[in-house]
Nucleic acid binder design. Structure first.
Lengths: 147, 147
DNA sequence: TTGATTAGTTAAGCGGACTGAAGTATATTC
DNA sequence: GAATATACTTCAGTCCGCTTAACTAATCAA
């Protein structure tokens, strides 16, 4: 089986569909929460527990400290982030999502999940099991690759 | 097999990983192209051949005609969109991606594809075939659902 | 303890993305 | 053919996100 060719094609088509869907999902999330793209990205970084200082965030997002500080300030005022002084180093701030901030991200993850779930449920049981197995494999591969 | 429970869990985890990846991809695309999120969304709409007039775009994006017109204007000046008069109705404009505009979108789709491809290539051949089959099923299901 | 470094904030200013309102040109309707 | 509707553009004004530069406060190193 010329598996390589097929693999590339199938993945390309899936990517195209998923890319489009991602765009819609993000847009929807932005409209609902009245947040900008970069604010959502910022929340997602915190959600996944990256470096949690102001400059750490800025660095990850490719913006200056000043920009990060201002953006964070808005999110704090919206009650989505908690900003406390780091007891170990009183210059630094510790940034954590509030319950509300976490809810916002999980909600959009769930919304996307529901879309895939709807797709999957349209399949036969056998096919469903294959999809589950495949996504599980991909998830594990992605985790391994990121770490 | 309590397939429903597993399905939801597996999909949720996959969504989380993919959501995060999507964010990064979009960010990367924005940084590279120096475009905003909404400009990329606009290009993607055209790429997938939705309604291609100014007000159609605005409606799909949930913004006013004025905003759509201005945004399109910038993209035309950047050489990413071609805006011509509709011969059928001279009030209307026909909007089409230029070669450069298309390239921009396909490039980001490909970038995402390469990520999945890398994930997949880390699997055994048997597993790869399963992933191909599963993504193919999902792609078809998504196409059916959208239409 | 003084000087340099690091973490973060604040201020001024720029451009992008949006809105509502007004304007132009074409189509439709009666 | 006059009134109305439609497709789009332009304008004035607002907010957001970014930048650089100047600042405060805490830490580190000699």
């Amino acid at each position: 089986m010329s598996s390589t060719k097929e693999l590339t094609d199938v993945i390309y088509e899936w990517s195209e569909i998923f890319m489009r869907r991602s765009g819609r999902d993000f847009k929807h999330c932005m409209d609902q929460s009245r947040l900008s793209f970069s604010q959502i990205i910022l929340l997602m970084r915190l959600y996944h527990g990256g470096r949690n200082g102001v400059s750490g965030i800025g660095e990850q997002l490719g913006i200056t400290n000043a920009a990060a500080s201002q953006s964070i300030d808005r999110l704090v005022n919206l009650g989505l982030i908690e900003r406390t002084e780091d007891p170990e180093d009183r210059r630094a701030k510790q940034l954590v999502l509030t319950r509300q901030g976490q809810a916002l991200i999980t909600k959009s993850v769930k919304a996307r999940g529901q879309w895939i779930e709807r797709l999957t449920k349209a399949l036969t049981l056998e096919q469903q099991n294959m999809v589950i197995a495949a996504l599980d494999l991909l998830t594990k591969a992605a985790r391994k690759m990121d770490s």
